[in-house]
């Protein structure tokens, strides 16, 4: 990156370090931090939407829909979340390909599961075999986001379901007495009031979500954990301009500090937000 970096063998001390930390691979490492932030930025609203849907379904008066919602809420909670991550990332991929296969190649007669293989016609592959590398990466990231949204949507549904029940009954009865329909009561009275009850649970969920981001590594995304392992591993002088020993310890220490700072910052912001939203409420902040 710097002009004096052209011959790393001659460098030493801080100049060596400054060159080492600005190699192309390190730039990819720094980029992967933004991948994590991007994941959080997309997943949080998506999970909230899933959660809202789940909570609405669980409250539904139609029994099967209500069962479905409650099953969604409880199933994800009883089982370790990484099991779901590992499951969904393959299951979603196969699901998409199966659907495309049914639509694109309807006259295909071979079975799709042949022994240990999952075979769909070439045109149904996602992404297509001929697609450029970036499309594969985007698709991988997309399935990862969907996986996170499904799993954390269940967490969020649990929180929102509780919050909806925490809104005082008198409020809903008043709304009914004023002649509002069920739908109107829901959207105009219940939903605006439930957020303050949901906030402690949702802040907690945000923290859990932050701490779940390193699991991206298990879904095959080149995230910060991937690069920390990659860059930290021992480099021989034969293969690298910047040989060094096993530095994974330091790279993971850096990740630890990153996460500590991030969760601490989130905690402070969320505390402020809770205080702000509790203003004028009839309870002393954060009771739900």
């Amino acid at each position: 990156m710097f002009s004096y970096c052209s011959d790393p063998d001659l460098l030493s001390g801080l100049t060596w370090l400054s060159c080492y930390l600005t190699t192309g691979k390190h730039m990819l490492f720094y980029q992967s931090f933004f991948v994590v932030l991007l994941l959080l930025a997309i997943t949080a609203p998506a999970a909230l939407a899933f959660g809202f849907g789940g909570a609405m379904a669980a409250r539904s008066r139609i029994a099967p829909l209500s069962w479905l919602g409650k099953l969604y809420i409880s199933a994800v909670r009883g089982v370790p979340d990484i099991a779901f991550f590992l499951f969904f990332v393959i299951a979603l991929d196969q699901g998409f390909e199966y659907l495309r296969h049914q639509v694109i190649c309807p006259d295909w007669t071979d079975p799709i599961r042949q022994g240990n293989d999952f075979v769909v016609c070439d045109a149904a592959k996602l992404p297509l075999n001929s697609a450029p590398q970036w499309q594969h990466e985007i698709y991988g990231f997309f399935t990862a986001i969907l996986t996170y949204a499904i799993v954390f949507g269940a967490f969020a549904a649990n929180v929102l379901f509780g919050a909806m029940r925490a809104v005082p009954k008198a409020q809903l009865e008043t709304a009914e007495a004023y002649g509002m329909s069920r739908k109107q009561t829901f959207w105009r009275v219940l939903v605006p009031q439930m957020w303050i009850y949901a906030l402690p649970g949702l802040s907690n969920l945000w923290m859990v979500l932050i701490k779940a981001t390193p699991l991206l590594f298990l879904l095959g995304i080149e995230d910060i954990v991937y690069w920390a392992r990659e860059l930290g591993a021992t480099k021989q002088a034969r293969f690298s301009d910047y040989p060094h020993g096993d530095w994974r310890l330091w790279y993971f220490l850096a990740l630890l500090v990153f996460y500590l700072a991030f969760t601490r910052l989130s905690e402070i912001v969320l505390d402020r937000l809770t205080q702000r939203l509790s203003k004028g409420q009839a309870f002393a902040g954060g009771v739900a």
């Binding site: 932050i210 701490k211 779940a212 981001t213 390193p214 699991l215 590594f217 954990v225 920390a228 392992r229 994974r248 310890l249 993971f252 220490l253 990740l255 630890l256 996460y259 500590l260 969760t263 601490r264």
Partner: peptide
């Protein structure tokens, strides 16, 4: 509590 268990294991 502030860092992911996954990272703690690695470290």
């Amino acid at each position: 509590r502030g860092s992911p268990l996954f990272i703690q294991f690695f470290l």
